[in-house]
Amino acid sequence: MDQLIEELKKEIIEVLNLEDKKPEDIDENAPLFGGETGLDSIDALELIVMMEKNYGIKLQNAAEGKEIFKSVRTMAEYIKEHRTK
């Protein structure tokens, strides 16, 4: 799980172009949205695309996103359970 969390942090920085952030700056338990990272709905779209592209996960229910994107850790847990690649 720890390896997946580190991988996710790097991917989030790259996909969302968080130039001034390093993986160690992101707390895996902190809220991804509405917290210090300042992410918004367009970032959520980018993360959905990233999950589909990198892990083969298609979100069927938009309401699920709220729980999945609570933090990097919840993302990692969801990916671990549902990934197809």
Binding site: V15, I42, L45, E46, V49, E52, K53
Partner: peptide, 13 residues
């Protein structure tokens, strides 16, 4: 590259 799927919204916008 992605066969018309998984398209990045920011680049499109």
């Amino acid at each position: 590259d992605n066969d018309e799927e998984c398209l990045p919204p920011t680049a499109f916008m």
